[in-house]
Amino acid sequence: MMHANGRVTTAAGPHKRFEALFNGRAFAPHRHDTYTFALTLKGVQSFEYRGACRHSLPGELVILHPDELHDGMAGTDEAFGYRGLNIRPEEFEHALAGRALPFIEGGRSTDRQLIALVHDLVRDLATPVNALDWSAAMTELADRLCAVETGQDIDRPIDHRAVYRARDHTLAHLDEPITMEALENVTGGSRWNLARDFRALMGTSPYRYVTLRRLDAARVLIANGTPLASAACATGFSDQAHLTRQFKGNFGVTPKAWVKLLDTCTHGTIIQ
């Protein structure tokens, strides 16, 4: 979508994710009924917010609370760009469990954990966010927003048994669609608590755990000569392109480049 001073590219899928590049003044004062998260990638993203002009540099995160008046402009003569998403407050409802909507003073943050969570949701706009990953992300975002607002991490008991049941279920069904509903049925708990507990014990979200285990299985098949399309089908990816995107996003190289690397290693030319 073209704009008078730039362009906005929207992402695939039902969730409102986008990439924007602007020169000069991008937006007149306006409001949203959603949270807006915008990860600055280029230039200086400046905006009037709650009576002051704020500035976000590359690598920093803009966080606008619902129904807060704001505008948008370049902070220098250079263009500014960002990737972002809009999230309805009700998507945090279960994760907040009665807590008030968190408010980030100043409308920006350099919190590494918060930035990493948003980055994971907007780094691949060509691929819709899996429902399993979105549910887990909403829980993690809500918790981290509250922690940034209060300066205190949330301390709560962990249901180890539920996490291990969820893990075992995913490992047994890697070639099938895995949903939060299925994991709720297996564990007997809520998806919100499971998402928190799973990351606490396994170091990652349920969706990312599933993706990485599928990639592990795909690597074995690919190393043994299985065509990419067949490896994708056998390990639960929608098609060869999906496998390739996930492979490169997680390992930094395409499957074909990785196979060549394996061949080079086998011949002993890069082993130190």
Rank of each mutant, 00 (worst) to 15 (best):
M2K: 11
M2I: 10
A11H: 02
A11T: 04
G13I: 07
P14E: 13
F22Q: 06
A26D: 03
P29K: 08
R31Q: 12
H32M: 06
D33T: 14
T36P: 00
A38T: 07
V44R: 12
E48S: 15
R50N: 13
A52G: 07
R54A: 14
H55A: 14
D67C: 05
M73V: 10
T76Q: 09
E78P: 02
R83C: 11
E90W: 14
F92Y: 11
A95K: 04
L96F: 08
G98R: 02
R99G: 12
R99C: 08
F103Y: 15
F103T: 13
T110V: 15
T110L: 09
A116R: 11
R123H: 10
L125M: 03
A126Q: 11
V129C: 03
L132D: 03
A136R: 01
M138P: 00
M138N: 03
E140T: 00
L145D: 02
C146N: 00
A147M: 01
A147L: 00
T150I: 04
G151E: 00
I154H: 06
D155I: 15
D159V: 02
A162F: 00
V163D: 04
R165N: 07
R165F: 08
A166H: 03
R167W: 07
D168K: 02
M180T: 06
E181G: 13
L183R: 04
E184L: 03
T187H: 03
G188E: 09
G189P: 01
R191A: 15
A195N: 01
R196L: 10
D197S: 08
R199W: 05
P206C: 09
Y209H: 05
R213W: 11
L215D: 05
D216N: 14
A218C: 07
R219T: 11
P227C: 11
A232H: 05
A232M: 09
C233G: 14
T235N: 15
D239C: 09
A241M: 10
F247T: 02
H267S: 13
G268V: 08
